[in-house]
Amino acid sequence: MTTSEQTAFDSAAAESILRRACVLARLDPDGVEMLRLGDHAVFRIDGGRVVSRVGRHADRLPSVRREVAVAQWLAAEGYPSVRLVTEAEQPVVVEGHPVTFWEGLADGEDYASTREMGELLRRLHGLEPPHFSLPPLRPFNKVEQRLRRAVIRAETRAYLSGLAEKLAAEYKQLEFALPSGHLHGDFNVGNVLHDAEGHPKVIDLDGFATGPREWDLMQTAMYYDSFGWHTEAEYADFAEGYGFDVRQWSGYTVLRSVRELLMVTWLAQNAGTNPRAAEEVEKRVETLRSGGSRRDWAPF
């Protein structure tokens, strides 16, 4: 086990890695502001002109290298997505942690409309596949990795592991309505932002894979019907922009449960260093057990 694996990956550790990576990339590390902590620690630097992503573990390196290749492919296609910055070869690696640097988009909080999201996703799925290979979508691999590392109660871990096993069996039986192809992998309103000129651009490119197109439609549907984060009109705009309403597909409830499990295990990664996250994990698990409303799940 390396030193970086032994050290808790919290905001302070991530910022230390970022500052060292900035030196290697010849970028100004002043004005560091953390945006979020998940599979990556995400920061704004250089007055918000640059966004940096610091990988939580060394095992993120292959996916981050693929993310760089995806960014280069989308740029060559003229697709409206976030662009890499700095002349340094990316990713920059510090103690095994992969670090990338991207153009900042306005203030990072000007979200695209749901219609723009649907249209952009349809356009993305319509691109010719890249010349390099993308991995098949394996949603339950992340669940296993996260639960193995998460600092949570043994009972909670056992419940989530059992739920993952049940859902994996149901997932294998799904019959998808749309053709398979390349996916963004984490397509939601938080990952489609307006730039300074007001043009929508897709960010967070590290989850690209191949698999059922329904996967990329799920989060917007869930954010509407499970969480109330989108209105009925906003969801209708998204479905019309894409040209398909995933909520009408027979496998929707199974895929929704898989997505909910991923939301819980994503947050569980921070339970050991963030008491609020630990409390939220237990609250979410209780609603999974009881079948209760997800409307009080707090955004993270």
Rank of each mutant, 00 (worst) to 15 (best):
A69L: 06
F43L: 10
F101Y: 01
A154V: 11
P135A: 07
A177I: 01
L160S: 07
Q173H: 15
P91Y: 08
L121F: 09
V42Q: 06
E67S: 06
R146C: 15
V42K: 03
Q173T: 15
S133C: 09
R153K: 07
E175G: 03
L134Q: 02
P98S: 08
S113T: 13
Y171C: 01
P80Y: 04
Q90F: 01
V82I: 09
P80V: 09
R83N: 06
E165R: 13
L74G: 02
W102K: 00
E119W: 10
P139N: 03
A177Q: 00
V85F: 04
A88V: 03
L127C: 05
T156H: 06
R66I: 12
S161F: 10
E77V: 05
S52T: 13
V51F: 02
A168S: 15
G78N: 10
S113I: 04
E109H: 08
F101V: 08
R65L: 05
V68S: 01
L178V: 02
S81G: 09
W73Q: 07
A168T: 11
V94Q: 04
A88M: 02
E170V: 01
G162R: 02
L120G: 03
E103N: 10
Y79N: 12
P80H: 07
R157A: 14
L147A: 13
H57P: 11
V51Q: 01
